[in-house]
């Protein structure tokens, strides 16, 4: 369970990115985070894995505040949260296989586990044939899949995806959505920031809308915009 309690985030003591946000997300939910550019979606996600600290309020994960964590516990937290970054954040100097294995290496998994798990996950995201390619040799959708593979490789309980369909054509975007939906059905809580109205409308999942840092809507099976 994830809970924001009156969370505000003010960058550089000036820009208010989140204002008094209170939401509760249950384990196993699929949540869309929408809002225009600059609304605070990425900030919301960054607070969850402690890339940024909240200026005010409490963030709880599994009934435990993550505001003040020891360095070691931050590591533990991050190992339980998979993150798909807006810019993929793949390392261009190594293959898809190594990019995905990297996450496990960092977490000091034994080599046997790595050699077994990486092909499995690549298979799952549909990149089995591209294991030896460099990220630069992949299409946008394939890079996105590689980023997802890296995020889910160690079976995290929470998956955060920041505009994972951002630069993709509709068909490829749907492929990614099916993949995320799949991961969600296996029990992972998925929080996805997006601008894609058609996807949100078709999926009919829970929707949290931000506007200039404030939660303006929070609906089960929501649609992108009531006017649309």
């Amino acid at each position: 369970m994830i809970q924001f309690v009156n969370v505000s985030k003010i960058y550089n003591n000036k820009v208010v990115a989140l204002r008094d946000v209170s939401v509760k997300i249950e384990k196993g939910e699929f949540v869309f985070l929408i809002g225009s550019s600059g609304a605070g979606k990425s900030t919301f996600i960054r607070l969850l894995f402690k890339e940024e600290e909240p200026s005010r309020g409490q963030i709880l994960i599994g009934n435990r505040s993550i505001n003040r964590l020891k360095k070691k516990d931050i590591c533990v937290l991050r190992r339980n949260i998979g993150v798909v970054f807006q810019d993929y954040s793949l390392l261009n100097d190594r293959t898809v296989y190594d990019n995905v294995a990297f996450a496990l290496e960092v977490m000091e998994y034994p080599g046997k586990v790595i050699r077994q798990r990486v092909p499995e996950v690549l298979e799952m995201v549909g990149l089995a044939g591209k294991a030896d390619c460099l990220p630069t040799q992949l299409s946008g959708g394939e890079q996105q899949r590689a980023a997802i593979a890296r995020a889910i490789i160690n079976g995290p309980q929470i998956l955060l995806a920041d505009e994972p369909t951002g630069n993709l054509d509709p068909e490829t975007a749907w492929g990614i959505m099916e993949l995320l939906n799949d991961i969600n059905r296996r029990g992972t809580t998925v929080i996805m920031a997006t601008h894609a109205a058609d996807i949100v409308n078709k999926m009919r999942k829970r929707l949290i809308a931000l506007d200039r840092g404030e939660v303006v809507r929070d609906e089960e099976r929501g649609v992108y915009s009531h006017e649309a």
């Binding site: 590591c75 533990v76 991050r78 190992r79 954040s89 960092v106 977490m107 000091e108």
Partner: peptide, 16 residues
């Protein structure tokens, strides 16, 4: 820099 940032976000320990 970039690799380090990703390492941190994936949950690498300090000494790692």
């Amino acid at each position: 820099q970039r690799e380090l940032q990703i390492m941190k976000l994936v949950g690498a320990g300090d000494w790692f």
